[in-house]
């Protein structure tokens, strides 16, 4: 089975303070620590497990520039067989549709059976999997938390649905799946694994290689345009309720009634 996993390098927001740059057009990126978008690790792990069971190969792909090579290498250290970087000046400023159009062009270069993406990223909107599937006119399932490969024509997937419930589908291959955290336990990548892939050449595909019209992607092709970034207002911190336990609970109930927490 030929599997393509779409990954992304994202700022590690849980460890970083995030600030808006001076023009308010982006975040301040200078001191940020980047890593692979957390969901993508689950997608790559799942791809590796399917390959180990069924044979075939796992390719990871990202849209970006030379800085993004590190995430490709990391996922190759995890066990992906190939990595591809899609990079071109004209790709910059793409919206979700633009990114999906670039990925589609890459998908069509080879006969993939299965495309996986992370369900979402911190700096994205969780939409690329669905848009890519629609552009390819392939079936799609989101928030997948279980995969069972039936044969090379069909797979069975479980999806997380509202209320923490799960529903099961059979899907014809080729298809696109967005992978939810918790589907597996992504393997640890040690420094030795990273070293092994450090000097591998990562092929770069440009707009020309992919046959993409420059005006259809990037800023000029974007129909959802980013305007301004703000830091949302934060509260001033909690009012700590004091007194005896009884008094504290009385106070809390008064506040909750006033704020509509208890109807």
């Amino acid at each position: 089975m030929e599997i393509l996993v779409c990954i992304k390098r994202a700022p590690d927001t849980s460890e970083n303070e995030i600030e808006v740059n001076r023009d308010g057009t982006d975040i301040e990126r200078d001191d940020l620590v980047y890593s692979v978008n957390e969901w993508d690790n689950y997608a790559v792990e799942e791809a590796i497990q399917i390959r180990d069971k069924m044979g075939g190969s796992v390719t990871v792909v990202t849209v970006g520039d030379e800085d993004d090579e590190e995430v490709i290498r990391r996922e190759m250290a995890m066990g992906a067989d190939h990595g591809i970087l899609l990079s071109d000046e004209t790709f910059k400023g793409s919206d979700g549709r633009g990114i999906s159009a670039i990925l589609k062009a890459e998908v069509e270069k080879k006969n993939y059976d299965l495309i996986l993406t992370g369900a979402q990223a911190d700096d994205g909107a969780g939409q690329v999997g669905g848009i890519l599937a629609a552009m390819l006119d392939w079936p799609y399932a989101s928030l997948v938390n279980f995969i069972d490969v039936i044969d090379d024509k069909k797979i069975k997937v479980g999806r997380e649905i509202a209320g923490g419930n799960q529903e099961m589908h059979e899907i014809d291959l080729p298809c696109v799946l967005s992978i939810q955290t918790g589907i597996n336990e992504p393997r640890y990548v040690g420094i030795r694994g990273i070293r092994k892939v450090a000097s591998l050449e990562i092929p770069v595909h440009t707009a020309g290689d992919l046959g993409i019209a420059p005006e259809s992607v990037g800023e000029s092709g974007a129909r959802t345009k980013r305007l301004d970034y703000f830091v949302p207002e934060l509260g001033e911190g909690a009012e700590i309720l004091e007194g005896s336990t009884e008094e504290i609970i009385d106070k809390l109930l008064e506040f909750l009634k006033a704020k509509g927490g208890i109807k």
């Binding site: 700022p11 927001t13 849980s14 995030i18 808006v20 975040i27 911190d122 700096d123 974007a222 129909r223 959802t224 345009k225 980013r226 305007l227 301004d228 970034y229 703000f230 830091v231 949302p232």
Partner: peptide
């Protein structure tokens, strides 16, 4: 919201 709720971004739909 983006970046784990730390940033609010305005986008225009064109």
């Amino acid at each position: 919201y983006m970046y784990g709720g730390k940033i609010l971004a305005d986008v225009e739909l064109d």
